[in-house]
Simulated scan of single mutants.
Amino acid sequence: MTDFAGKQVMVMGGSRGIGAAIVRQFVAAGASVRFTFSGSPDAAAAVAAETGATAVQADSANRDAVIAAVADAGALDVLVINAGVAIMGDPLTLDPDAVDRLIDINVRAVYFAGVEAGRQMRDNGRILIIGSVNGDRVPWPGQTAYALSKSAVQGIARGLARDFGPRGITVNVVQPGPVDTDMNPAEGPFAKMMHAAMAIKRHATADEVASLVLYLASPAAAMITGTTQTIDGGVGI
Rank of each mutant, 00 (worst) to 15 (best):
A69R: 09
P91A: 11
V70A: 09
L102A: 10
D104T: 04
V70T: 09
A83T: 07
L92G: 08
I87L: 15
L79Q: 02
P96D: 14
A86R: 04
V85P: 00
L76M: 04
P91N: 05
L102V: 06
L94H: 07
A98S: 09
L76C: 02
T93W: 00
I103F: 15
M88E: 13
P91C: 03
I67R: 12
V70L: 08
G84K: 07
D90W: 09
A98E: 11
A68L: 06
L79D: 03
A83L: 14
G89T: 13
V78H: 02
D90S: 10
L94Y: 01
L92S: 11
L102D: 10
A69W: 06
P91S: 13
D97G: 14
A98V: 11
A75D: 07
D72V: 05
G74M: 07
V85M: 06
A83F: 12
D97S: 09
D77M: 05
D95C: 03
R101L: 07
I103K: 00
V85H: 00
A75W: 02
V99M: 13
I81Q: 07
T93H: 09
D97E: 15
A83V: 09
V80G: 04
L76H: 02
I67E: 10
R101P: 00
I103A: 03
D72E: 15
D77E: 09
I67L: 04
D77F: 07
V70D: 06
M88N: 11
I67S: 03
V99A: 14
A86M: 11
A68H: 10
A71N: 08
A71H: 14
D77H: 15
G84Y: 06
V85R: 07
A83S: 14
D97C: 01
D90R: 06
V70W: 08
A69C: 09
D104P: 08
G74V: 04
G84W: 03
A68P: 09
A86I: 05
A71T: 13
D100W: 02
V80K: 02
V70F: 04
A71Q: 12
T93M: 07
D100E: 15
V78T: 11
A98P: 02
V70I: 14
L92P: 00
P96K: 11
I87Q: 15
I67D: 06
D90H: 05
A86F: 02
G74A: 06
A71D: 08
V85N: 03
N82T: 03
V78Y: 01
G84Q: 05
A75T: 10
N82F: 03
D97V: 07
T93S: 14
A86G: 13
D97M: 05
V80Q: 12
L92C: 08
D90G: 07
I103R: 02
G84I: 01
A73E: 03
T93G: 00
G74Q: 08
P91V: 12
L94M: 15
G89S: 12
A71R: 15
V66K: 00
